[in-house]
Design a protein around this nucleic acid. Structure first.
Lengths: 208, 208
DNA sequence: CGAGATATATACAGACCTGTATGTATCTTG
DNA sequence: CAAGATACATACAGGTCTGTATATATCTCG
C-alpha cells in the first residue's frame, strides 16, 4: 500500500466552501458533483461556477479534467481508507472483530442521504479499459489493489490455509453490500453481509 | 417478474450484422459499443456509422438515445435471465445446486474476453437518481427487483427462517463476484464466491 | 406496374464540451 | 511601498453532442 499524503484531503469535508483556498474549493465542489452525479455528466464549467473560481485558476491547479477526476478518486480513497483504519483499530485486537468492523463502517455510511455507491466501481463503469485516461485508470487499479492488501492484512493473523479465497470472499461481500445498498436503497437487511462474513470466517477458522 | 418478449433480443448475438433488419442492426451495434465502453462515451453518430444506417432511420426506430439505452439494458437483462434460467434448470432439482449454478454461470461469463462487468451496476453509475432519464432508471430498478425475486424463488424451497437475509447474502456474493472479476481481471480465485454461497446456504439450512 | 412505406444521404441548428488567450485586479512579501 | 505571484472576468476556438429538415432512392406488395 503506497503511502499517501492525506493532508490535502482530510478536512475538506468539514470546512465551508469560502473558508478554503481555491484548489481545495475546486476539489470539494468537484468531489460532491462527481459523486452525486457522475464524472462525465459534470462539466468543467459547472465546477468552476459552483466553486466560485475563475477558469484560468482552475487550469492552473488542474492541468485537465482527467487529472481532476483522478484527484477526486484519490481524495475518496484517502477518506475511505482513513475511516477503515479507524474502524478496525477501534474494534480491538481480535482479527474477526476487525474484519467485521468493515461491515459496521459500511452500514454506517449507507445511512448518509448522500450515499451513492462505491466511487471506484462507478469509476470503472465510466472509464473502462479503452478509455484514454491512464491517470484515472491507474488510480482505480491502485484502489482495488490497496483494498485487497488491506483485507489480506486483517485476515493474515488467522493463519488460514486458504487465505486467498477468504480474502476474495470478504472482498465480494464488501463490494456486493455496496452495490445492494446503492441499488435497493433501504430495502435490504443491513446486517446480512456482516453475518455472512462472520459465518465464512468462522468456518474457515474451523477448517484451519 | 414481468414477462418480457425476448424474441427481439435472442438471436442478436449469433447473426452477422448485415443479415439483420435495421432496428436489430442498430441494437446489436449499440449493445456492443455501450457495453465495451459506456453509454455516455458512445455517441449516436458512432452507432449510426458502425451500424451502417441512416440517421433518420435511427430516429424512426428509437425516439431518443435514452430510449436506445433502455432498450440495450432490457436486451442485456433478457439474455442474462435466459442464461440464468437455463443454468439453474440444468442443475437439477436440489435447491442448493440450483443456487450454486448461478456462480458457475458467472464464472463462465468471466472467461469471455468481452466481459466488462455488470451492465446494470454500470448503468447505475452512469444514470444516478438525479439523471433525467426515467425510462433508463425504471429499467435498472426493474432488473435489480427481478434478480432479487429470482434468487428468492431459488431459496424459497429451503423454507428458511431468515430467508430474506440469505437472499441478500447471495445477491451480495453475485454482485461482489462481478465487481471482483471486472476490477481484478483474472487475479481472483474463481471458485471462492461459489464456495462462500455453499457455506452460507448449508449454515442457514442447519439453523433451520 | 405503381403507390406507399421504408431506408438513404447530407446538411444544419443549437447546445454543450474542454482548453486557451487576453487583460485586469488583488494579495503577499521583501 | 513596490513587484511578483495569484486570482479574477470574459471572450473565443475548435470540437462533439442530440435531434431535425430536406430531398432522393429502394423495396414491398396489392
Amino acid at each position: 500500500m503506497k503511502t499517501l499524503d492525506v493532508s490535502e484531503y482530510l478536512d475538506l469535508e468539514s470546512r465551508s466552501l469560502d473558508a478554503l483556498a481555491p484548489r481545495q474549493r475546486i476539489l470539494k465542489t468537484a468531489s460532491e458533483l462527481f459523486y452525486r452525479n457522475s464524472i462525465h455528466t459534470v462539466g468543467i464549467d459547472r465546477i468552476i461556477a459552483e466553486s466560485g473560481v475563475a477558469k484560468m485558476t482552475f487550469y492552473k491547479h488542474f492541468p485537465s479534467k482527467a487529472n481532476l477526476a483522478a484527484t477526486y478518486l484519490r481524495h475518496k480513497s484517502a477518506l475511505w481508507f482513513d475511516m477503515l483504519a479507524t474502524a478496525t483499530e477501534q474494534a480491538g485486537p481480535a482479527p474477526l472483530d476487525r474484519v467485521l468492523a468493515i461491515f459496521d463502517a459500511l452500514n454506517a455510511s449507507f445511512q448518509a442521504p448522500t450515499f451513492r455507491g462505491c466511487p471506484f466501481v462507478r469509476g470503472l463503469a465510466e472509464f473502462g479499459p479503452d478509455a484514454e485516461t491512464p491517470e484515472v485508470q491507474a488510480t482505480l487499479a491502485a484502489y482495488f489493489h490497496d483494498l485487497r492488501k488491506f483485507v489480506a492484512s486483517l485476515v493474515q493473523p488467522l493463519k488460514l490455509k486458504n487465505q486467498e479465497s477468504v480474502v476474495v470472499q470478504i472482498l465480494a461481500l464488501i463490494q456486493g453490500s455496496l452495490v445492494n445498498a446503492q441499488a435497493m436503497r433501504g430495502g435490504v437487511e443491513p446486517l446480512a453481509t456482516r453475518d455472512a462474513a462472520k459465518v465464512l470466517l468462522e468456518a474457515a477458522v474451523q477448517r484451519g
